[in-house]
């Protein structure tokens, strides 16, 4: 554990709770892609199966459980409790076009051909693109509430900080995991456009609207 990874994890946790609090306080999930949340749910459930097989640390276990539960609660709020506010007409990204090729890729390109390892690889690949339905939705409606943009910023920052963590680990522990690194770089690149808009608009107190 180093400061970059800890900061990344906190940023990730913050993102998830910003979203939950936004939905809970406003009693609405307007502007939120339920599809992205389902993809993140799949990411956590397939990656954290090792909760049952290997113990790493109390920190690790607690964080995994929080990520899974918080994401399941978010999915419940979007699709059940506040379903009437869910903007499904604008949440039209074809998520299956991500999941199916990624499942194939995880079977073909992995560290080890075993069920848990393939599921872990699937979750890493899937996480890298899980935000696409949300970004697509924002580009379609052309706007995002300020709190939604804080959510996206914290979520993008998390994987960016993980990259710094991997550089640090490479030099201090000679540790690297190229699957995580390549997917993590792709994931961070997806947020670049958004980071630019966030810094130039939201920080200056303007609502975020995307050019059509």
């Amino acid at each position: 554990m180093n400061i970059f990874r800890l900061a990344g994890d906190i940023s990730h946790l913050l993102a998830i709770f910003i979203l939950l609090i936004k939905i809970w306080r406003s009693r609405s999930c307007a502007g939120i892609s339920g599809k992205s949340q389902v993809l993140f749910g799949m990411v956590f459930l397939t990656r954290y199966l090792d909760l049952f097989t290997s113990f790493i640390s109390v920190y690790n276990t607690v964080m995994k459980v929080i990520f899974i539960l918080a994401t399941l609660v978010t999915i419940y709020l979007v699709f059940f409790k506040f379903r009437a506010t869910y903007d499904s007409n604008n949440d039209t990204f074809r998520a299956e076009l991500l999941v199916i090729p990624i499942a194939g890729l995880a079977v073909l390109v992995n560290h080890e051909f075993s069920l848990f390892e393939i599921l872990w690889t699937f979750s890493i690949y899937l996480e890298s693109v899980s935000i696409m339905p949300q970004l697509y939705m924002i580009s379609k409606t052309g706007e995002a509430e300020t709190i939604t943009s804080h959510y996206l910023f914290a979520l993008g920052l998390y994987r960016g900080l993980y990259i710094v963590n991997w550089v640090w680990r490479y030099y201090t522990e000679q540790f690297y995991d190229w699957i995580a690194i390549v997917a993590g770089v792709v994931q961070t690149l997806l947020y670049c456009d958004f980071f630019y808009l966030y810094i130039t608009k939201v920080i200056k107190g303007k609502e975020m609207s995307l050019p059509a």
Partner: peptide, 10 residues
Amino acid sequence: CSEYDSHDEL
């Protein structure tokens, strides 16, 4: 033990 045996990151 290979590096990927334990995925210690979240």
